[in-house]
Design a protein around this nucleic acid. Structure first.
Lengths: 183, 183
DNA sequence: GATTTTTATAGGCTTTGTCCTATACTTGTC
DNA sequence: GACAAGTATAGGACAAAGCCTATAAAAATC
């Protein structure tokens, strides 16, 4: 399971709270390839404590809620190292949006083109954001070099989708077979 | 939910059993961008019947198990048409594999390159398969033009990932910052 | 001849993930 | 001064998906 190991990986940088993991790690550092629900972060932390891969201690605060700070144990660290060394297993594509296109034969050319252009806009915005983050990243450490790679993976994926959309739009303009007559 | 609408879309081609949907539609036609669990296909069919979007009738067979043949209702058809006309909403990237890379700073250059090359091989095989299916497809109908587009979406995505891996391998060869000394 | 695969449906269990709510005090904004 | 946003944790409910099992007879393979 990715989330467990992701949390181990982030905690390996240093002790942190669930809140830090959610807001600083997932919503910032890894947001270009993963999202984690807040409730699930806490649930997963609980499980990691049960399995003795992380420990927690309560840090009282005045004014603000108490913080529960989590740290990786030696067990957790070796689990992480072992997981990291395993082969990459690229997941098959899974894109429900493509069903909309796949079954879109009842749409006319104009509607198809509109759908595609709309999608293109959103993707371009995301791509701009990811590219900005990638070029802003100074590669001073091995970690940052790898972080840049993940940003470029996201950029490559977005770029490919945009190019594909452009290709689809062109094909629509060049003319698709007309919808079949349905009595 | 994609699966419901996917099933409506496939049944719109003509009445079918859950078995047909699983083996012919999902495992064949749409396998390059979606997989559906067999049990979930049947569960979803049940739900669609409850919502009166599809109907079923039992067709007895000798020797083989009885077939339950499902058809779209008018309700189902208009639900499908409405769904198809909605804007595409490209999902954000979600790739747990990237965590393995992201936290892979403890791996040395050779190990990193091995991980990347392994992954490349599998992706290339998939790409070959998808490309073969795409070029084998004669575009005689609007449906087939759209099917080709989804195959090309998969091809574009695989291509992008392979190119990205090549880029990563190059960067590793050109030299990454060394791992930090840990006492 | 024995085993595996194909055809066909369906229930159970579990994991993963999403959304909503509650609590509570501080800080920042209009 | 009121209201929203930030800090911080956690439970409940539920949807989506994956894996395993059962049934049962024909057909195909070893």
């Amino acid at each position: 399971m990715s989330l467990e190991h992701a949390i181990l990986g982030f905690l390996d940088r240093g002790p942190m709270t669930g809140y830090d993991l959610k807001t600083r790690c997932f919503d910032r550092d890894a947001s270009h390839f993963w999202t984690a629900d807040q409730a699930q972060v806490y649930r997963t932390l609980d499980r990691l404590v049960t399995r003795r891969l992380v420990t927690s201690r309560l840090v009282p605060q005045r004014g603000k809620p108490d913080r529960r700070v989590y740290s990786v144990t030696d067990n957790g660290r070796s689990e992480l190292r072992a997981w990291v060394a395993q082969p990459l297993q690229p997941a098959p594509l899974r894109d429900g949006d493509l069903f909309r296109l796949y079954f879109g034969a009842t749409l006319d050319d104009a509607a198809l083109e509109t759908r595609l252009s709309e999608a293109r806009r959103g993707l371009q915005e995301r791509l701009d954001g990811v590219r900005a983050r990638s070029s802003a990243l100074r590669i001073t450490t091995r970690e940052k070099a790898l972080a840049r790679m993940t940003l470029d993976a996201a950029a490559a994926s977005l770029r490919a989708e945009i190019d594909w959309i452009d290709d689809c739009i062109e094909r629509v303009r060049e003319g698709l077979p007309a919808p079949e007559e349905v009595s």
